[in-house]
């Protein structure tokens, strides 16, 4: 089984699909958690305290980091193989094929933007919350950290760009993971693409609303 997941093109795609599914579920959870900060600051701080340096939170963080790493590494492996399969001589004239989404052809670029945003996010939040707690010092207050970070317009713009990249990535990724495991047909393509757009939009609006809310109340 392990051999097929790395040696077969369909196996590698299955790994991308399942790791992508796991990351989508995490993102939905994270977005829901963030929205609590708008509704109740005490509630959000309680969640942050619950997800501190406890064994379950650390285990979850480790599994999550593994999921991101697998998705990222496989994306590069697939891209290198695909570029090799395409060959060095490219078409002189290229056009956009009918019905082909821009995101579907730029998943790696979007993924790199998402990973860069993730690194900034880890420095901005994770390093000041869970990491400091692991190192034995008092973590920063969750809401205060959000408030201070998004009082800076540069961070607001960078995070919004990050969320836009995530939106594009999810519009293709969500329906594509169903296709890769074979749960799709001509009847379901419009439905799956609609579901993907809805999921991507919910994620975007959830994350962006928190950033914009804390930016505007700081004005």
């Amino acid at each position: 089984m392990s051999c097929f997941l790395s040696s077969s093109s369909l196996g590698r795609k299955l790994v991308m699909s399942l790791s992508g599914c796991f990351l989508v579920l995490f993102i939905l959870f994270h977005m829901t958690m963030n929205v609590v900060a708008i509704i109740s600051e005490d509630g959000y701080n309680a969640i942050c305290e619950f997800l501190g340096a406890n064994w379950y939170a650390l285990l979850g963080t480790a599994i999550l980091a593994f999921g991101v790493l697998v998705h990222f590494v496989y994306a590069f492996i697939l891209t290198i193989q695909n570029r090799r399969a395409r060959g060095n001589v490219r078409y002189e004239i290229t056009v956009k094929e009918k019905g082909v989404d821009w995101a579907s052809k730029n998943m790696l670029v979007l993924g790199i933007i998402i990973v860069l945003g993730l690194l900034l996010h880890l420095v901005n939040f994770w390093a000041k919350m869970q990491l400091v707690e692991i190192l034995g010092t008092e973590p920063a207050s969750g809401v205060e950290l959000i408030r201070s970070t998004f009082s800076c317009p540069v961070y607001v713009v960078i995070y919004l760009v990050w969320f836009v990249a995530l939106w594009f990535h999810l519009t293709h990724g969500v329906w594509s993971m169903f296709q890769t495991v074979g749960w799709a047909n001509d009847t379901w393509y419009p439905r799956l693409k609609c579901i993907a757009n809805i999921v991507a939009t919910i994620v975007f609006l959830g994350f962006a609303s928190v950033v914009l809310y804390f930016f505007f109340i700081n004005l």
Binding site: S9, R12, K13, L78, Q81, N82, R84, A85, R86, E97, G99, V100, D101, S104, K105, M107, H172, W175, S176, Q179, T180
Partner: peptide
Amino acid sequence: GFGNCTNTGA
């Protein structure tokens, strides 16, 4: 040596 399908639909 064919590549991996990324479901672009092209």
